[in-house]
Design a protein around this nucleic acid. Sequence first.
DNA 1: CACGGAAACCGGACCTGAGTCCACTTTTCC
DNA 2: GGAAAAGTGGACTCAGGTCCGGTTTCCGTG
Lengths: 225, 225
Amino acid sequence: MTAQLPHPTQLPAEMPSPCSAEPRRNELPVLGQAPRERADAARNRIRLLDAATQLVREHGAQNVTMEAVADAACVGKGTLFRRFGDREGLMLALLEHAEEEYQRGYLLGPPPLGPGAEPLERLDAFGAATIRHLLCSMDLYLAADACASRRYTVPGGVLRVTHVAMLLRQAGAVGDVELVAQTLAGYLDPALVNHLRTQRGMSLERLEAGWRELVARAVAPLSPS
Amino acid sequence: MTAQLPHPTQLPAEMPSPCSAEPRRNELPVLGQAPRERADAARNRIRLLDAATQLVREHGAQNVTMEAVADAACVGKGTLFRRFGDREGLMLALLEHAEEEYQRGYLLGPPPLGPGAEPLERLDAFGAATIRHLLCSMDLYLAADACASRRYTVPGGVLRVTHVAMLLRQAGAVGDVELVAQTLAGYLDPALVNHLRTQRGMSLERLEAGWRELVARAVAPLSPS
DNA sequence: CACGGAAACCGGACCTGAGTCCACTTTTCC
DNA sequence: GGAAAAGTGGACTCAGGTCCGGTTTCCGTG
């Protein structure tokens, strides 16, 4: 299928920061710094994201075709794919935007979610916040769902795993914290949360309580059997 | 890379028909119920599975198109899709066959994997067996990967969760066993195992040890905090 | 056993949407 | 001003999936 694309453009290296084209002159291509984005490219990227956001809100993520996005943005299909790589990439970009507030919440926000509270308290709050956030943007998450190849390399997901691992360590967890964190974060997989809610009819309360139990197990000392 | 598949012509008479909630047909023509599968349909199903198996072994699951399968089976494309619903369905059918021996192993086989051993012992063996099995057929698993909608309803996966939950209960686990089992089984997601192995370079030994730790945590008593 | 009709099945033309390609245009920088 | 780099757009390819007229199988009937 899609091997590595010979495209020079990777997935969105920068967030859609409107009109943040700082005039930097005489910049030598040192340190692998990305060269400034061209004006037309920036304009089109914003157009595309705007159009995509609008269409998704209007028709649901599943029913939005790439061509429709390109047309709505008055831009060629090639441009769309150049910017975002593929459909998944576009959805991921939208998702990244939707995740901003949530991410700020657990990275920088006030306790108990943010820094300042006890690690255990933060872990509990993190699970609850994540589950609620997922349920809010589930439509987009399911559309952006990375099939196998990317599922565990999506930035947001990697960040979650890292965050959980950090808190686990701070909470004094022992054992293979990395793997435990990965497993714990797996509980927060959008598709799983969706499945448990819709197919298995589990309540939000149960899902949150389940998270707390898993956290408790994760930080518990290991009794050598 | 290449999964060795058992002989294709002996596939189970049952196969998932994803397109509709079809009533299970039994073989006995009693009470005007259950029309059996037509002879030509059966013949073509076998042809298709045979051809698919061959092509997958030859070119890798990723590089096999549905049309190629249909052509190789000397059958129309419509027939292929009628039988298996979609590409995923076909891969799932192949996978189901590839899983047979593995499933027999932990359901009916000899201890420590099968019945007879202590639950904890069986849990440990189950993880190791699963990880090894996944790595063997990874090619097929990744191709058959159910994107979000089906990921948690694939028969093999559901069976694993159920099995783990049963063993956890037998081992005297307390708490929300269902959710813990689901999470534990999440560690055995093919895509995750593949990711940890290839992207993160984890050794088979570490993955197996990780499973054992998770099992230990899952059956540990819950200390009320 | 021949017959006949209904239901299941077949197959390949056709449609759709993702992703690619490349000749052409715009921007940037000197 | 001008060359090179970056970006553009839409025609094109390709694979998954649908549709429907024609065919085959099944089964009850005479």
